[in-house]
Each structure stands twice: as C-alpha cells, then as structure tokens.
Design a binder for these strands. Structure first.
Lengths: 211, 211
DNA sequence: TTGTGTGAATCCCTTCACAGCG
DNA sequence: CGCTGTGAAGGGATTCACACAA
C-alpha cells in the first residue's frame, strides 16, 4: 500500500472524507467517483486514482459505500483514533484555536497549553491549565503529546520547535510567519495568512491580463 | 510578462519577498539565488526559474540587489499598495484575525467588520464599528472592499460569498470548513486547520513504513 | 571566477481511455 | 448497462547544464 503520495493527494483525501461525513449525515448510502469529485472540486478520474494508491474500495457499476469508504479513509489518514495535541502560545490565535470546537470533533484533542505570559500561566481553559513554556518538555511527556500547534511569535518558534522535537514530537502545525527547519522524520505544516492574502492580491492584480 | 504561473510559484514568490524584507532589515544589500533558496526551503534553480517568468532582475556573477528585487516582487504580487479587506464573522477566529497586526503591516487593512450577533453589532474594534451582516452590500460599497475574509459558520459561507461577489468582491479568504463555489474571475483561498492536522496525522501514521 | 538566465531533459501529476466486473 | 480500477498518454513543473555577462 503506497505511502509515497503527493501533498495534493492527501489534501484531496481529506476533502473526500469530509464530503463522506456530510453524505452520511444526509443518509446517503452510495456515491460514485463523479459525485465525490463534484463535492471536492476535482474530477472522477482523480478521485479513483487517489483511492487506487491505497486499495480498491468500490464496486464496479455501483460506486462506493459511503460508510465503508469513510472508514477506509479515516484509516488511511490516520484519524481513526485520538491525537494528543499541544498548543504553545495562548494569545489571540492560540485561544481562537483552542476554543474552536472543530479539532476535538475530528479527533484532535488539545491536552496541554503553554505560554510565557505570567498573567496567563495558571489560568484554566476548559479543564486545561496553562503551564509555563519553560515546562514544555515535562508537559509534552506527561500528556503524551504527538503534535504541536505553534502559535507563538516568529522569534520564538524555532526554539520551541527544537525543544519539542527533542522530546519526541513529530508533527508541527506552525502559525508563526517564519520558515522553520525540521529534522528528517518530522512533519511541518505552515499556515500563513498573509501569504494567502498575497495570493489573492496576485490574482486580483493580474486578473484579466494576458488572455 | 507571464501571468500564467502555478499556485506554488506564487507561494514561493511570497516567501522570497518575506525573506528579502528580513534581509533588508539585517542590512544585507545583495543576495544570490542560492541564499534565497536556502531561506525559502527550495533550490537556486527554482528561484531563478520563478523570477524568470516576470523578468531579469539579477546581475550575472553578482546576484540580486535586495532592495530592487523586493520592490519588483511587491509589484509582481500586487502588494505595492493598500488593499481594503472586509471581515465577516466577529467570533473567535474573526477577532483573532482582526487583532493580528500582521495584515496591516503587509498592506491589508480590515476596513469593515460584519456579524449577525446583536450582542456584537454596534461594538467598536479599534475604530471599526461592527455592522450587521444584513448591511453587507452597503458596507462593501462604502468601504471599497475588494477582498473578503470569511470567518463565519460553514452553513452561512456560501450565501455571504454570493452576496459579496454580486457587489464586486473578487477575492475571498475562507476559514469556513466547507467547499465553496466561486464564479469565474473570482479567486478563493481556503484555510482549513483540520485538514492541516489531518495531513500531519497521515504523515505520522505512515512514517517509517514502506522504505 | 562567480552566479544569472534559459533551453533541454527529467520527473511527477493529471487526464484519457478502456478492459473488466457487477 | 454503469462505474471502477488502471495502464498509457499528455502536460506541467522541477532540475540540469551551460552559454553568457560582470
């Protein structure tokens, strides 16, 4: 079962999974690759090719069983379980992320929150006590954290990352607007809102030009 | 000057621009494609190829002048000006985005905020009054909004988008976890934090497998 | 000599087209 | 028939390699 698939394939698999959850909620029992494609903004062939990297989940002439394909996709994406997530940075973005219910609903539980602000350390957010970032290593070990959300200033991000990786964290979701370095075996996802707006700016600026 | 460049090229151009701003802050006057590549996590050839779509900005044997290339990139990305941005949704994510200073610093100014919550409408955020989402069209027209940040529930996103597009908005940054449809000529960027975590989940799950 | 700009080669992803199964 | 699964074809993007300019 191939694991060497592209970033874009993985992104699309997520989309398919989310579509399937919706479909299940609507009581739909079967989908074709064409249906899924439409919901995900892609093509039927693409859907089939994406899935083919991991197995054969459909029935020829019929399509895919929603419940079954959903289960398979959850397995493939590794979300058929809970993930313990740590959050570093209890500022604006950090608190917005913490209070966003979507993570928990999809199996990502924020089990520890860290910050350096003495005014925040000791506070409790829905049962999770904010600890001082100095205790990063203990917090990660005690809560079995496997992924870390970095919502700290750019200047602090690399140091926090390095320390977290040293105690076993292998997945980083970075909101700091800076290019971080990760050792091999560690995955990094960047979310940079300014860059998204710049992409819009580019599109709007060059819109209507050059045929 | 080619405008038909890939999403990834644009993303990298943003990265180069941000690196150049840093370099300028450090007082560096000249960079080579190799230097830029290292900062952006890419290759020297890639940097040169990316830039070549828009012109020749370097000097053979010397590299690029930081100040000049920065100016060119700002022009290319269309960020050599201010952009008027509207924000719909004054909840957790909306307020975090509003209070994030990075946007303004890069020329994206949030000039209007809209929400449906009567408890929020009428409040003032740093000089911007929160208006009721019913007044979307007027607000967009009055403030000359060209881009819209959607920080509303998934169920409301498409309707808000359609209304905004009807009054001329051509760029949408969407935080709602749903697949939106935009007419031709309108650009859409999605930010889906759950999907980012799922990408990490995939990587961690299949890490170390299959050589 | 150094490092850009760029055709050529390569690689990878998407799309096509159809055999095959229900 | 209808729709999947998949080799083959096609198209884009990255990498290579080198002519050229400072």
């Amino acid at each position: 079962m191939a694991r060497q698939v592209s970033e874009s394939t993985i992104r699309r698999l997520s989309l398919y999974l989310h579509s399937l959850e919706e479909l299940e909620g609507e009581g739909v029992e079967t989908v074709s690759s064409g249906d899924l494609a439409q919901r995900g903004g892609t093509t039927a062939a693409q859907v089939r090719k994406d899935l083919s990297h991991f197995g054969s989940f459909g029935k020829r002439g019929l399509g895919y069983e929603v419940a079954e394909l959903r289960k398979e996709l959850r397995e493939i994406l590794g979300v058929g379980r809970k993930w313990q997530v740590g959050l570093v940075g209890a500022g604006r973005i950090g608190s917005a992320l913490f209070e966003y219910g979507g993570f928990r609903r999809w199996g990502f539980e924020i089990v520890t929150v860290l910050d350096t602000d003495p005014g925040k350390v000791g506070q409790c957010w829905g049962g999770v006590e904010i600890r001082h970032a100095d205790e990063l290593e203990e917090a990660i070990r005690e809560a079995d954290v496997e992924m870390l959300i970095l919502a700290v200033p750019a200047s602090a991000a690399q140091e926090v990352l390095d320390r977290a990786v040293d105690v076993g964290v292998r997945g980083i979701l970075n909101f700091a607007p800076t290019q971080l370095r990760v050792p091999p075996g560690v995955s990094l996802q960047d979310v940079n809102m300014v860059m998204e707006l710049e992409a819009l700016s580019f599109a709007l600026t060059h819109d209507g030009e050059g045929g």
